[in-house]
Nucleic acid binder design. Structure first.
Lengths: 254, 254
DNA sequence: CGAAAACTTGACCCAACTCAACGAACGTGG
DNA sequence: CCACGTTCGTTGAGTTGGGTCAAGTTTTCG
């Protein structure tokens, strides 16, 4: 049970780079505490200097978010099972954004000091986390591009594609759907639109046969079509970091 | 002369975390080659697997950029003296964006292997670079927010504020101006607007006394005013990582 | 079962875009 | 150092994608 949780971290880091057996053992030996958050709970607050823990998501979803003076909210990333939340703050003095639970969230907290120590002792772990950071940065760049230069239809479709691929990579979906627990307002906050316009956009995508919806579940029958509509190529997710061949989670189109 | 160049890297990393004398010496001993790029030259191309070098900017400016299928361009970051360009790709198999020279650019190329080795031998260097990565990520998050949730006036002012602060931190400006060698089209590509609208926005900011312009130089007399107009707080730049007190490059307003 | 939250839909509006023309600055070669 | 082509900046007129407001309707959940 205990092992099962930290092995999630091992598996995650393994997708980033090869780990030595000693490193894997050391990860499984990390001390941790378990914690549950309920939906709108803050896990980290912007400006907080209390960054002693690093959270690993075991189940549920979380998102990072920033607010403008006007009170507008921008979701800058969404995280799921296997993601490390506080790598982004591991060496910083204070948080520069908020992290919030999107759903009921099961977190495994690891002491910052233990993690820093682990990285020192096992460089491959440091490398894996470094790569994780790089992938996050790549996603940020893609989101800037998405929000800055694509129209509503493309933006929303792109987001759906990203989630479908990431959910599958996290072992949570089949790649052809995304049962994302986001409200339309939250989707809007992620792609820089209003909830009203997200609603119209989703309806249009459904009308055009690009997506199917039932409740909050969104699915695709024609992956190539969604990809095209969303101007999506999965390469920025760097899911093939460790694979030698070109086997990929989904056809990425690069 | 040779030392003078790599000492730029030492100084840069020192702003991220304390370095051991041995680490500093090791940095100064890194083998490198110098290279000049002229303005629209590509330094790294999206998809490239040729990521053997890591470039340090000695003089000039560079930017990262992504293109959509529609051919629209989004500039996702701008870099200046002291910035490390390829930390973003150091452990990845291929580039996920383009890096281009914004001006004539003097780069100091360090072998990826030498850098990886340095990080292994001197953990403080790894930490400093890690922090550098974290700050880049923080800037990305801020840009997503800027592009996704602010109006044109605020967006442009925010960008100008960021550059003023970063230029000063890089020893290139007085904090009250930014002589940025960007065309209005490039500014537009950075904030998700058209060049025409950037032009109108800059004129409006000038008319309202927020900025002054002569040629491409933009300056502020009233920093607090620009900050307010741009909804800017410098905290996301984490410039006070190593300072113990609250001394800051500019009044950051947090 | 009832209240609150989320989703829909319509009518109207406006910030930013497009297109287009022109002027200013810049660099390059003769 | 000047002529000239090219890039960059400026401005106007008209258009539009997405926002706002507001009133339902449906879903969710205690």
């Amino acid at each position: 049970m205990v092992q099962a949780s930290l092995s999630l971290l091992v598996n995650k880091l393994r997708t980033r780079t090869a780990l030595s057996p000693a490193a894997e053992a050391a990860i499984l030996d990390l001390p941790f505490t378990r914690r549950i958050y309920d939906s709108p709970a803050y896990i980290v607050r912007d400006g907080s200097t209390d960054l002693g823990q690093c959270g690993l998501i075991v189940s549920g979803f979380a998102f990072r978010q920033k607010l403008t003076v006007e009170g507008a909210r921008q979701i800058v990333s969404v995280h799921m099972r296997g993601d490390l939340l506080d790598l982004q703050h591991l060496f910083l003095k204070y948080a520069d954004h908020n992290i919030q639970a999107l759903t009921r969230l099961e977190i495994l907290n690891i002491e910052r000091a233990a993690l820093q120590d682990l990285i020192l002792r096992h460089p491959s772990v440091g490398t894996a986390m470094w790569i994780d950071l790089l992938v996050d940065a790549s996603i940020y760049r893609t989101w800037i591009t998405n929000v800055g230069r694509r129209d509503a239809r493309t933006r929303v479709a792109h987001l759906l594609c990203e989630f479908a691929v990431r959910l599958k990579a996290a072992g949570l979906g089949d790649g052809g759907s995304c049962s994302l627990p986001m409200t339309q307002e939250q989707i809007g906050d992620a792609v820089g639109l209003t909830s009203v316009h997200v609603n119209r956009t989703l309806k249009a995508l459904e009308r055009d046969g690009v997506i199917q919806r039932s409740k909050r579940d969104i699915s695709f029958t024609d992956w190539q079509l969604v990809r095209r509509v969303g101007d999506f190529s999965a390469s920025y997710l760097h899911l093939d970091q460790t694979s030698t061949a070109g086997e990929s989670v989904l056809q990425t189109g690069r």
